[in-house]
C-alpha cells in the first residue's frame, strides 16, 4: 500500500483503491481522525472517528483510540471483533473520563471487492454506484458508552470498478449556512451523485467546495473530516501497486 501524507490530508493508493481524506479543524483542536490501515496483502481498513470534546484531552484520547484501533486489527482483523475489542479497551479509557468516540470502520478486500462495515455511533457510509447513492444501514452505539459493544453487526457490500464510498464526520452534515440551516445528508447525497466518474481526490475537493458554497465562509462549531475511496480496478485484478 502507498499512503501519501500531504499538507492537506492523506492519499491511499493500493488494493485496487484510491483514497483521499482530510480533516478541517474548527478552532480549538478537536477529536476527529481517519486512518488507512494495511491489514494484509489483500485488504485494507479505513477508519473514521470523532472523540467527544475539544482541546488537549480530546486530542490525547483520539490518539489513544487511533493506536488501539491498529492494535485491535493486528490481534484479530475480523471487523466486528475489532470494534468489540476496541470498545472493551478504548471504551474503558474513555468512560473513566466520561467521554466517548463515534467510529465507522470499513474493511475492503481488494481480491473479492467485498467491503465490510461496522458502525459505532457514526454516520454510515454513502456508496456511489452507477450514478446512484445508497446509505449504509449499519448502526451501533458509540465506543465507550456501554461496557459491551451494541450494534447491528457487520454490513457487507460488493464494489465494482468505478464505485465510490464516502465517509464523513458530523461536522460536515451539521455545518451551518447563513440562515442557520444545516448542510445535511440530503445535500451531501445530491453532490455525491454528481461525482460519477470523478476520481477520489476530485470528489473530495468537489464536496468540500460545495460545503464552502453552502456555508459562505461562516466559521463552524465542529471539525469536518471527509474520506473518499474509489475502486480503480475490478476485483481480483490486484497487480501493480
Amino acid at each position: 500500500m502507498r499512503e501519501v501524507v500531504e499538507e492537506k490530508g492523506k492519499i491511499l493508493r493500493g488494493y485496487g483503491l484510491e483514497g483521499s481524506g482530510c480533516s478541517l479543524p474548527a478552532g480549538q483542536e478537536g477529536g476527529d481522525f481517519f486512518e488507512f490501515i494495511s491489514c494484509n496483502e489483500g485488504s485494507v481498513f479505513i477508519v473514521i472517528g470523532d472523540v467527544m470534546g475539544k482541546g488537549f484531552q480530546a486530542a490525547r484520547q483520539m490518539e489513544t483510540i487511533r493506536q488501539l484501533a491498529r492494535e485491535c486489527i493486528r490481534i484479530n482483523p475480523h471487523p466486528l471483533e475489532v470494534v468489540r475489542r476496541l470498545n472493551k479497551l478504548g471504551g474503558y479509557e474513555l468512560r473513566k473520563c466520561g467521554s466517548f468516540a463515534t467510529l465507522c470502520l470499513l474493511c475492503y478486500d481488494g481480491i473479492t471487492g467485498r467491503l465490510t462495515c461496522v458502525n459505532a455511533g457514526h454516520h454510515p457510509p454513502l456508496l456511489l454506484s452507477n450514478g446512484q447513492v445508497r446509505v449504509g444501514q449499519c448502526w451501533g452505539v458509540a465506543i465507550g458508552l456501554l461496557e459491551d459493544y451494541l450494534g447491528s453487526g457487520a454490513e457487507e457490500f460488493f464494489l465494482a470498478d468505478g464505485d465510490a464510498v464516502v465517509l464523513y464526520t458530523d461536522g460536515l452534515v451539521e455545518a451551518c449556512g447563513p440562515g442557520e440551516q444545516r448542510y445535511g445528508q440530503e445535500r451531501l447525497k445530491r453532490v455525491v451523485r454528481l461525482q460519477n466518474g470523478a476520481d477520489a481526490e476530485c470528489m473530495k475537493e468537489n464536496i468540500l467546495a460545495d460545503l464552502d458554497t453552502f456555508t459562505r465562509g461562516i466559521s463552524q462549531k465542529d471539525d469536518v473530516t471527509l474520506v473518499v475511496m474509489k475502486v480503480t480496478r475490478k476485483a481480483g485484478d490486484m497487480g501493480g501497486d
Binding site: 466517548f100 463515534t102 455511533g121 457514526h122 458509540a142 458508552l145 456501554l146 461496557e147 451494541l150 458530523d170
Partner: peptide
C-alpha cells in the same frame, strides 16, 4: 427533531434503554 436525529446516530436512546435495566452496563 434535528437533535433527535443526531442523538439516534450516536446510540443515545439505546444507551438510556440499557441503563434503565442495567445501570452498570
Amino acid at each position: 427533531s434535528h437533535i433527535q436525529e443526531d442523538l439516534e446516530v450516536i446510540g443515545f436512546f439505546r444507551v438510556l434503554e440499557v441503563l434503565e435495566t442495567k445501570p452498570n452496563a
